[in-house]
């Protein structure tokens, strides 16, 4: 992170104001994650293996990236329902650039990021220029448009076999650390996710724009009066969310070696869940990068563990719902304990 600009005269972020409430708040979701891991580890010897942990990392990456974008949006009091559909459109554009146009995977990757960012700008402008009443509406519209466009340009068919290059490297390849039986394969996408989380941590906590994002969500009117360019911040956060959907599309395309128009169905709900489980407030102004990572991990570990234990299909849905509620409730309890201190 050497390229990170030096923080100048910026108020400390919430993750630096370490009072007891904050720590307890953080611990809440983390406690849920630890509990979940303990239950699965005790239930199945296959759970805590390096192979399975790499699997969890691969399966969590896409949601972890989408959740980061979702976090900055929810911090402003907004919501982005379009991320799953934007991912699908970016993914099929990427696949078509590579297979139909025959261009290098790097061009496909740039195209996916551009599609994501462009639709994000669109979301932001719908909100700030057309003055649609709530981002729920603008991003819901964008969700349908992007999904429809993905279906239209592919004729509803999947595109497979993207060949080799940067997309495959990011989404599919692994680095082997160590040798022999102790060797551990680390998926490349894990590095992408870690880099993104570190970058977002610094962005939200150490830059003026990052502080403006929190301010916008905390109290938009006060933010406006104190000189925060609220409209520009709003366009920015939806652009970031779109860009992250584009990045997630690159990862998923590499992982599945394909682009398909039905990709990402319901991903927006997983991303929102990760944020909320991680302690982000729907009302804006409250939420952390680390909490979001824990939220995404809870979702990923849960799905993985249920598969490993071969839990009945119909029950899985019940269990997922229950754990989400339990994880957030642990948070509520912790926060209450912190406040009564």
């Amino acid at each position: 992170m050497s390229s990170q600009p030096e923080p100048v005269a910026v108020a400390p972020g919430p993750e630096e104001r370490r009072n007891w409430t904050e720590i307890a708040f953080q611990l809440g979701a983390l406690l849920g994650l630890i509990l979940l891991v303990a239950i699965f580890a005790l239930s199945s010897p296959s759970f805590l293996t390096t192979g399975n942990l790499a699997g969890i990392a691969r399966q969590t990456s896409v949601n972890a990236l989408l959740a980061l974008g979702m976090l900055v949006v929810i911090l402003t009091g907004g919501i982005d329902l379009s991320v799953g559909a934007v991912l699908a459109l970016a993914m099929v554009v990427l696949a078509m650039v590579i297979t139909k146009a025959g261009l290098d995977q790097s061009i496909g990757m740039v195209a996916a990021l551009a599609v994501g960012a462009a639709l994000g700008v669109g979301n932001g402008l719908l909100l700030t220029r057309l003055h649609l009443p709530h981002p729920f509406i603008s991003t819901l519209g964008m969700m349908n448009i992007a999904r429809g466009a993905a279906l239209v340009i592919t004729g509803g068919a999947s595109i497979s076999a993207l060949g080799g290059g940067i997309v495959k490297f990011i989404g599919n390849d692994e680095i082997l650390l160590g040798s022999g039986d102790g060797a551990v394969s680390i998926p490349i996408m894990l590095f992408v996710v870690v880099l993104a989380y570190v970058a977002f941590y610094f962005f939200l906590n150490r830059t003026v724009v990052g502080r403006h994002i929190y301010a916008t969500g905390g109290n938009p009117e006060a933010a406006r009066l104190s000189g925060v360019p609220v409209d520009r911040i709003l366009v920015l956060v939806y652009t970031i969310s779109g860009l992250m959907a584009g990045l997630a599309a690159v990862v998923l395309a590499g992982r599945t070696d394909s682009g398909y128009p039905n990709a990402g169905l319901g991903f927006e709900l997983d991303a929102i869940s990760a944020c909320i489980i991680g302690g982000t407030s729907f009302f804006g102004g409250v939420g952390t990068v680390s909490g979001t990572l824990i939220g995404a991990l809870i979702m990923g570990v849960l799905r993985n563990g249920l598969n490993i234990m071969s839990v009945d299909t119909n029950w899985q849905t019940v269990v997922i719902g229950s754990v989400i509620i339990a994880a957030v409730y642990v948070d509520v309890l912790r926060r209450r304990a912190g406040q009564s201190r």
Binding site: G55, Q59, T256, L265, N307
Partner: peptide
Amino acid sequence: DRAKGQAVMENVLQA
């Protein structure tokens, strides 16, 4: 879903 099918297969293969 293709990606979910992939994840399920990875997980079941672990066990």
